[in-house]
Design a protein around this nucleic acid. Structure first.
Lengths: 198, 198
DNA sequence: GGGCACATGTAAGCTGTTACATGATTAA
DNA sequence: TTAATCATGTAACAGCTTACATGTGCCC
């Protein structure tokens, strides 16, 4: 699946649950898919225009009043299934936290601790968000059929967050060891002084 | 930290461990940072040229023989610390697997199972890779000081992979339930037929 | 009437990937 | 001598973010 198609899949998918405006689409993607997906604002309207041009979504409501809702067509549903069936190739990873820790010797144990603590609290927030999603009642009848699948992604978020918490605690302990090792032979406030390659 | 700077941080960081050629840099980033970082080929040489222009790395060896090794300078080390100290803002998430599962009703439980099984085996591979890294002896004396930090990233990879495994097993069980629920009122080979919004 | 949320778009610019182009060295 | 690996780059393009521009409807 080419990269452009992913945006289309997300848009078609959201519209397959419920027709809505582009604006609502943006919020839905941010709020509901937010923990595993993101679309920037500037992508959604061009994607909608392209999908409309291809007859995969339909615009309804005032053309000049400004607000119009988009609905998926039968062709759009077919296309969505096609897109989802394509292999899910994971994006090349880029984890700025782990990059910093990998070269953590340059930062020293204390700065690394701060980074890990920050990541830990983000994981706790995510866990809280996931719990909130679980508490949300399945009030919308259109979404009850989708809900079991949604819960799979919630569960993924929970497992990932709990793993992050467990790792963070382990890492903090390891960094404490490093700090006391270093502290033995030089003043506690001093910078680490790794050797150069001049 | 702007996006461009991240590439520079990765390059400077790698050179802070050991001077090497651009080609070796690429391999080092792929093989050693691979489980949490990636740089595409076309980024490394421009980044090196820019770093050289700014005096943060030094080119040594034949200018015309083709091969030359790059080494970090004192200014480069200072710059690296600066870059690493900047806040690590996590990239907006884009998980194609979870996108597919979220709209999994369109695919049906069986196709979803296949996706999860695929992710599961990838997690097992990652776990094996992490184990292999742990077994690698710290032969290079230049890297022994860095090793404790490296192991933090390995541990992160292990926690994430184990979480993925646990989640996958849970998800597979949930999908089995869905399959038998669906199977009760229609032939097993039939497609799911969600209602449209025409 | 002023501010805020809703709503739809456009354009510039940066980042990053891929493919291409070139040549040296080394092993079969 | 032919193929593979090492080595250094460039150029075109795709993708995405950000900021801008514009207007409506509603509530205080």
């Amino acid at each position: 699946m080419a990269r452009t198609d992913q945006t289309q899949a997300a848009v078609l998918g959201a519209l397959s649950v419920l027709p809505m405006t582009g604006y609502a689409l943006r919020q839905e993607i941010r709020d509901t898919l937010g923990h595993f997906w993101s679309e920037s604002f500037g992508q959604i309207y061009p994607a909608l225009a392209e999908l409309e041009r291809r007859g995969l979504v339909e615009r309804r409501g005032g053309d000049r009043t400004g607000s119009s809702t988009f609905a998926i067509t039968a062709a759009g549903t077919a296309r969505l299934r096609e897109l989802l069936a394509e292999p899910a190739q994971p994006a090349p990873p880029r984890n700025p936290l782990l990059l910093r820790l990998f070269f953590g010797r340059q930062l020293g144990p204390d700065a690394c601790r701060a980074l890990v603590l920050d990541a830990r609290s983000r994981a706790e927030e995510q866990l809280a968000r996931m719990a909130a999603v679980r508490r949300e009642p399945a009030d919308d009848p259109a979404s009850t059929a989708d809900r079991p699948y949604w819960l799979l992604t919630v569960s993924a978020g929970e497992h990932a967050a709990r793993a992050q918490l467990a790792w963070a605690d382990e890492a903090l302990a390891a960094l404490d060891e490093l700090r006391s090792d270093d502290g033995a032979d030089r003043p506690p406030s001093s910078r680490p002084t790794p050797e150069e390659h001049p």
